[in-house]
Protein backbone atom coordinates (compact mmCIF):
# COMPACT_ATOMS: atom_id res chain seq x y z
CA UNK A 1 0.00 0.00 0.00
CA UNK A 2 3.02 2.23 0.24
CA UNK A 3 2.66 5.37 -1.78
CA UNK A 4 5.05 6.74 -4.36
CA UNK A 5 6.47 10.21 -4.51
CA UNK A 6 9.23 11.91 -6.49
CA UNK A 7 11.53 14.58 -5.06
CA UNK A 8 9.76 17.14 -7.18
CA UNK A 9 6.38 16.13 -5.85
CA UNK A 10 7.63 16.25 -2.29
CA UNK A 11 8.97 19.73 -2.84
CA UNK A 12 5.67 20.88 -4.28
CA UNK A 13 3.75 19.70 -1.22
CA UNK A 14 6.30 21.01 1.29
CA UNK A 15 6.49 24.39 -0.46
CA UNK A 16 2.71 24.63 -0.46
CA UNK A 17 2.52 23.92 3.26
CA UNK A 18 5.43 26.22 4.12
CA UNK A 19 3.83 28.96 2.07
CA UNK A 20 0.66 28.70 4.10
CA UNK A 21 2.31 28.14 7.47
CA UNK A 22 1.58 31.65 8.70
CA UNK A 23 -2.13 31.02 8.15
CA UNK A 24 -2.68 27.41 9.15
CA UNK A 25 -0.78 24.18 9.40
CA UNK A 26 -3.37 21.56 8.49
CA UNK A 27 -5.22 20.98 5.25
CA UNK A 28 -7.88 18.71 3.89
CA UNK A 29 -6.97 16.20 1.22
CA UNK A 30 -8.96 18.15 -1.36
CA UNK A 31 -6.75 21.21 -0.77
CA UNK A 32 -3.80 19.37 -2.33
CA UNK A 33 -5.56 18.43 -5.56
CA UNK A 34 -4.87 21.78 -7.32
CA UNK A 35 -1.13 21.20 -6.84
CA UNK A 36 -1.36 18.25 -9.21
CA UNK A 37 -3.84 19.23 -11.92
CA UNK A 38 -2.82 16.30 -14.11
CA UNK A 39 -3.28 13.68 -11.43
CA UNK A 40 -6.41 11.87 -10.36
CA UNK A 41 -7.23 12.14 -6.66
CA UNK A 42 -6.12 8.56 -6.09
CA UNK A 43 -2.68 9.36 -7.54
CA UNK A 44 -2.38 12.42 -5.34
CA UNK A 45 -3.20 10.19 -2.40
CA UNK A 46 -0.21 8.02 -3.27
CA UNK A 47 2.05 11.05 -3.08
CA UNK A 48 0.69 12.10 0.29
CA UNK A 49 0.79 8.55 1.67
CA UNK A 50 4.46 8.31 0.69
CA UNK A 51 5.15 11.57 2.51
CA UNK A 52 3.37 10.26 5.60
CA UNK A 53 5.42 7.06 5.53
CA UNK A 54 8.55 9.12 5.02
CA UNK A 55 7.82 11.17 8.12
CA UNK A 56 7.48 14.43 6.17
CA UNK A 57 3.74 14.82 6.75
CA UNK A 58 1.47 13.72 9.54
CA UNK A 59 -2.26 13.28 9.83
CA UNK A 60 -4.42 15.26 12.23
CA UNK A 61 -7.90 14.05 12.98
CA UNK A 62 -11.02 15.67 14.36
CA UNK A 63 -12.38 12.17 14.76
CA UNK A 64 -14.83 12.65 11.92
CA UNK A 65 -12.47 14.24 9.42
CA UNK A 66 -8.76 14.03 8.76
CA UNK A 67 -6.25 16.68 7.77
CA UNK A 68 -2.65 16.66 6.59
CA UNK A 69 0.17 18.87 7.85
CA UNK A 70 3.94 19.01 8.10
CA UNK A 71 5.13 16.79 10.91
CA UNK A 72 5.20 18.65 14.22
CA UNK A 73 3.88 21.91 12.77
CA UNK A 74 1.08 23.99 14.19
CA UNK A 75 -0.30 24.92 17.56
CA UNK A 76 -2.31 21.76 18.05
CA UNK A 77 0.02 18.87 17.48
CA UNK A 78 -1.30 15.36 17.55
CA UNK A 79 -0.26 14.38 21.08
CA UNK A 80 -0.59 17.08 23.72
CA UNK A 81 2.29 17.06 26.15
CA UNK A 82 2.29 13.31 26.68
CA UNK A 83 5.57 11.64 27.35
Amino acid sequence: MAGVCTDEEREKVVDFLNGKSSVKSKFYFQDFLPLFPDKKPREVKKVLSALIDGGVLEYWSSGSTTMYGLKGAGKQSAAEGES
Binding site: S49, I52, W60
Partner: peptide
Amino acid sequence: GGIVGVFGYG
Protein backbone atom coordinates in the same frame (compact mmCIF):
# COMPACT_ATOMS: atom_id res chain seq x y z
CA GLY B 1 -6.97 15.51 20.70
CA GLY B 2 -5.79 15.39 17.11
CA ILE B 3 -3.99 12.11 17.37
CA VAL B 4 -5.12 9.82 14.57
CA GLY B 5 -3.66 6.42 14.72
CA VAL B 6 -0.51 4.47 14.53
CA PHE B 7 2.35 5.20 12.18
CA GLY B 8 1.18 5.38 8.57
CA TYR B 9 -2.51 5.10 9.46
CA GLY B 10 -4.85 8.08 9.34
